[in-house]
Nucleic acid binder design. Structure first.
Lengths: 350, 350
DNA sequence: TTTCTTTGTTGGAACGTTCCAATAAATTCG
DNA sequence: CGAATTTATTGGAACGTTCCAACAAAGAAA
């Protein structure tokens, strides 16, 4: 319906003003809704804008009042469904607050990360939610906050950076699921997946260790295997574990993705997961529920974490002077089939 | 290292100029790298910028030359790994061209879609790659192109919108995988998943039909089931199919996600997929390879489609007058285990 | 030497918006 | 009725950048 004006020349507020027979100031008032403007005038201006195909130029507007109502969401690994779910939570809250999230994927590259964060800042993002790439050092982030951009670190805590933080209760969660395996009678338990340089792994492995020690189980260093936190990584690590002379009877995996890889490896070795060996994950992504046998795991509610992260960031944008705040999301055990609890209950009953 | 200047007042090009003892024009030349500036001066200016914690204001710059080097990527469903992989391809190419992709997720909501596209345009995005939400009508997109923003529609073709398009070869792919099942001896084949209003489903189902007809197989309307294109949708539809008196021996699924849901349903009904029933998918997301039994599917190379989409968009940004261009990505059959071809070969050999 | 180019640098005028102070018209108050 | 207030509208000065024309200094060519 709206005929684009001249060749490529953008339609500005002034052309609208001329066409509608008012001043540019009046058009601006209509646009921002701030001052008092006669209803009929407003209507007329709005119609004119529509007729000429006007596009609001936010860059020009931000020149005066730096309120751009966008926030950046920087993700380290979009191919991991966990982060996709996290992103969905973030978007939900931001949208309700009238903000828009612009996402970018760093694919674990710190240089890419710096690039996109700089771009977001240059475009006047009010804040950034960062799921840091693997070797992000806290001092890499100083420049962001220097210019007054709110920053929140999510999922991977960054020791030494005093920003707001939203992470799940990794230690307690891991300890909880390990205890569950111990209660099922397992003693020889492996911890599998993730690289030891990752803070998240350190926390989860710490929880594993504390549960083991508390129960008086021996921790065999040969049963602590690193891998990339991918399905292939889990597959490889599990294969390695299964080639040991003295196999574990249960495996705690770094996250769901590696756990699913591990399950596959176990199946390839002729083991029935949940009967011959127990495998548990961490995160409770939607895959965990759908895989077969269904994965026992620790639910950290990625969507909820995203919502919380967004809410915290908005708070910080509203009051930049406020102290950084942390949120440690609850992690609760979700018992399904892969740990064998179900079969054990059946046997006990029968 | 860089001490942020005064309280919150942003550092501008003029303050840099004053501090460095040059004019703002010189600073601008350093920033854009356009004119000739003495190396020592450039160094000095750069140092000063670093020292004062300068942030480039892209909004102000765009006011003069509308070259923002960002493009928008609008995804309809981030929780589907297919789109995550597509996004990764897009980002790869854009990055190499010095562009940055800002993604947004519409979650199949047209109003959200309009909102984010408007926001992207207001921020001066040079182009937008759109994977349209479900009930997007072509006329919804007129306003985007009116203002000279390049637009490319991906994955879901939008009949009636004359934009560049990047989609996979849905019809041929579906026909190919159906023929494969027929060659394995199947005659009673179901088509399952997706809603009939989806163009992609129409194309894939069309391919299915043509292969069936060509082979002289009867097409039973009772074996054409819609569902949401999710795992749960596939699960439900498959359960429905399995409760029929006259079950199919093979199932072509709308995509991998529904196929995986269908596999799960089959397993729950006590069927061994690949032996008792054949199930095939479409897309070849990384899940297809990892599920057990591995999924026979049609590879459309989402990453490659993303790369192609980005390349085409860049071309269109460079030459806005150019005709819209289409790319139909190849779809080739990937035979794994879920169709039973492997078992059949074994039997023939043994 | 003088003239012509090249190299660096510069002030000022845009760009499209918002805000402020000023004004005109309409309304309320004493 | 005049004064005070409110309502509706307006021109002009920012905002931070880029571009253009101008210019000074230094080399090259005559």
């Amino acid at each position: 319906m709206s005929q684009p004006k001249g060749s490529k020349g953008k339609v500005t507020i002034i052309e609208i003003a001329d066409a509608a027979g008012v001043s540019k100031s009046t058009v601006s008032l209509v646009l921002t809704g701030r001052g008092a403007v006669k209803p009929e005038t407003r209507q007329h201006v709005l119609q004119t804008m529509d007729r000429l195909g006007y596009v609001y130029n936010r860059g020009a507007a931000n020149l005066r009042n730096a309120q751009s109502r966008i926030v950046g969401l920087v993700l380290n690994d979009l191919s991991n469904p966990f982060f996709a779910e996290f992103a969905i939570g973030v978007e939900k809250v931001l949208q309700m607050a009238g903000y828009v999230a612009f996402m970018a994927n760093t694919a674990e590259s710190v240089v890419r990360q710096e690039q996109v964060m700089r771009m977001m800042r240059e475009h006047g993002a009010g804040g950034i939610i960062l799921c840091p790439a693997l070797d992000t050092r806290p001092e890499h982030l100083d420049w962001v906050r220097a210019a007054g951009t709110a920053l929140l670190v999510a999922i991977r805590r960054l020791p030494g950076a005093d920003t707001s933080v939203v992470v799940p209760e990794n230690l307690a969660g891991a300890s909880r699921v390990t205890r569950h395996l111990i209660n099922l009678g397992h003693e020889r338990i492996a911890f599998l997946g993730g690289m030891h340089s990752m803070v998240v792994r350190q926390e989860r492995h710490g929880g594993f260790l504390s549960a083991m020690e508390e129960a008086g189980c021996r921790v065999d260093p040969a049963l602590n295997l690193e891998s990339m936190p991918t399905r292939d990584g889990g597959f490889g690590a599990m294969s390695a574990v299964l080639s040991l002379a003295d196999r574990p009877t249960a495996v705690v995996c770094y996250n769901d993705v590696t756990a699913i890889g591990a399950m596959l490896a176990a199946a390839r070795h002729g083991l029935v997961v949940g009967r011959d060996i127990a495998i548990v994950g961490f995160d409770d992504t939607s895959e965990a529920r759908h895989v077969s046998p269904a994965l026992t795991t620790v639910a950290v509610d990625p969507v909820g974490l995203g919502e919380r992260a967004a809410a915290l960031l908005l708070k910080q944008i509203a009051d930049p002077a406020a102290e950084p705040e942390s949120f440690i999301g609850p992690a609760h055990l979700v018992i399904r089939e892969s740990c064998g609890a179900y079969q054990r209950a059946l046997a006990a009953a029968g």
